[in-house]
Simulated assay, not measured.
Amino acid sequence: MQNIRIEKTTCPKEKPGNDNPLTFGTIFTDHMFEMDYEVGKGWYDPRVVPYHKLEMEPSCMVFHYGQEMFEGLKAYKTEDERVLLFRPDKNIERANRSNSRLCIPEIPEDVFLDALKAVVNVDQDWIPTKPGTSLYIRPFVIATDPFLGVRPSYTYKFMIILSPVGAYYASGLNPVKIWIEDEYVRAVKGGIGEAKTGGNYVASLASQVKAHDEGYSQVLWLDGVHRKYIEEVGAMNIFFKINGVVVTPDLNGSILPGVTRNSVISLCKEWGIPVEERQISVDEIVKAGKNGTMEECFGTGTAAVISPVGELRFGDDRMPIGGGKIGELTQKFYDTITGIQLGEISGPEGWIVEVK
Rank of each mutant, 00 (worst) to 15 (best):
1 M>W: 04
2 Q>Y: 05
7 E>L: 12
7 E>Y: 08
8 K>G: 02
11 C>T: 01
17 G>T: 11
19 D>Y: 10
24 F>C: 05
25 G>E: 07
26 T>V: 06
28 F>R: 07
30 D>E: 09
39 V>C: 12
39 V>L: 02
42 G>F: 11
47 R>L: 04
51 Y>W: 05
55 E>M: 13
62 V>I: 14
64 H>I: 02
66 G>H: 15
69 M>C: 09
69 M>N: 07
71 E>I: 01
75 A>C: 13
79 E>K: 07
84 L>V: 14
85 L>V: 06
87 R>E: 06
87 R>T: 15
88 P>Q: 07
90 K>G: 07
93 E>H: 12
94 R>E: 01
96 N>W: 02
98 S>T: 15
103 C>R: 14
103 C>K: 11
104 I>T: 15
107 I>M: 10
108 P>S: 13
108 P>V: 09
110 D>A: 14
116 L>W: 11
117 K>V: 03
119 V>Q: 02
123 D>F: 09
124 Q>V: 01
131 P>W: 10
135 L>C: 08
138 R>C: 05
138 R>T: 02
145 D>L: 14
147 F>S: 05
148 L>D: 00
150 V>W: 13
152 P>C: 08
160 I>A: 12
160 I>L: 04
160 I>R: 09
162 L>N: 03
162 L>A: 03
167 A>L: 13
168 Y>C: 14
172 G>V: 11
181 E>Y: 02
182 D>L: 04
182 D>V: 03
188 V>K: 01
189 K>L: 06
191 G>T: 13
191 G>I: 09
195 A>Y: 11
199 G>K: 14
204 S>Q: 00
209 V>H: 11
209 V>I: 12
213 D>L: 13
226 H>Q: 14
227 R>M: 10
229 Y>V: 00
231 E>V: 07
231 E>Q: 08
235 A>C: 05
239 F>V: 09
241 K>M: 00
244 G>P: 10
246 V>I: 08
246 V>A: 15
250 D>M: 09
253 G>K: 02
254 S>I: 04
254 S>C: 13
257 P>L: 00
259 V>L: 13
260 T>P: 08
270 E>R: 15
270 E>H: 10
272 G>P: 01
274 P>G: 08
276 E>M: 08
277 E>T: 02
279 Q>S: 09
282 V>T: 04
282 V>Y: 07
289 G>T: 15
291 N>F: 08
293 T>D: 12
295 E>L: 12
298 F>H: 05
299 G>H: 12
299 G>Q: 09
301 G>H: 04
301 G>D: 14
306 I>G: 07
310 G>L: 01
310 G>V: 15
313 R>A: 05
313 R>T: 07
314 F>A: 00
317 D>W: 03
317 D>S: 05
318 R>T: 09
319 M>G: 02
324 G>R: 04
326 I>C: 13
329 L>I: 07
329 L>V: 14
338 T>N: 07
338 T>M: 07
343 G>D: 12
346 S>A: 12
356 K>Q: 00
